[in-house]
Lab assay of single mutants.
Amino acid sequence: RNRTTFSTFQLEELEKVFQKTHYPDVYAREQLALRTDLTEARVQVWFQNRRAKWRK
């Protein structure tokens, strides 16, 4: 699988949710996936990576 390149819009949407919660539930991830045209799995992995970055 190739690396996912996120658009500016997608990143803004993802970051917006991350500001509210670092652990969105499955429903929130599904909604975000639909809004950003990503799969729920991509959204989940983005949050994992974003939390790792945030901890540093």
Rank of each mutant, 00 (worst) to 15 (best):
T39G: 04
Y27T: 07
R35I: 13
R35Y: 06
T5G: 14
T39D: 13
K16Q: 07
R35C: 04
K16L: 07
R3Q: 14
P24N: 01
T36C: 13
T4A: 13
T36S: 04
N49I: 04
R50C: 02
W46D: 02
W54N: 06
N2A: 08
Q44I: 06
Y23I: 01
V43P: 02
L34Y: 04
E12C: 10
R29Y: 05
W54L: 15
S7T: 15
Q44D: 09
K56A: 07
H22A: 04
V43W: 01
A52S: 11
Y23A: 04
R29E: 02
Q48W: 05
E40H: 07
Q44T: 13
K20G: 07
R1D: 15
Q10A: 11
Y27K: 14
N49Q: 13
R3E: 12
K16V: 07
K53G: 11
D25E: 05
Q10C: 01
T36V: 12
T4E: 11
Q44R: 11
R50T: 03
R50D: 06
H22Y: 02
R51T: 01
W46I: 00
R35A: 08
V26A: 13
Q19S: 15
R1K: 14
T21R: 02
Y23S: 05
Q48P: 02
S7P: 03
D25I: 07
Q44S: 13
F18T: 02
R3N: 15
V17L: 14
T4F: 14
D37G: 12
H22R: 08
E15Y: 00
F6W: 10
L34V: 13
V43F: 00
K56S: 14
F18L: 00
R29A: 04
R55L: 11
F6T: 05
A52C: 06
Q44N: 13
Q48C: 09
A41N: 11
K20C: 07
T39S: 12
T4P: 15
R50F: 02
V17D: 05
F18S: 03
T36F: 10
V43K: 01
K16F: 05
V26F: 07
F47D: 02
Q19N: 15
E15A: 02
K53S: 11
V43I: 15
A33K: 04
A28G: 05
T4C: 15
Q19W: 04
K16N: 08
N2G: 08
K20E: 12
F6I: 13
Q44G: 12
L34G: 12
R29T: 13
W46C: 03
A41M: 09
V45A: 12
F47V: 02
R35P: 00
L38S: 13
Q10I: 05
S7I: 02
L11A: 11
V45F: 13
F9Y: 12
R50A: 11
K53D: 12
R51C: 04
Q48L: 09
Q44H: 13
E12Q: 11
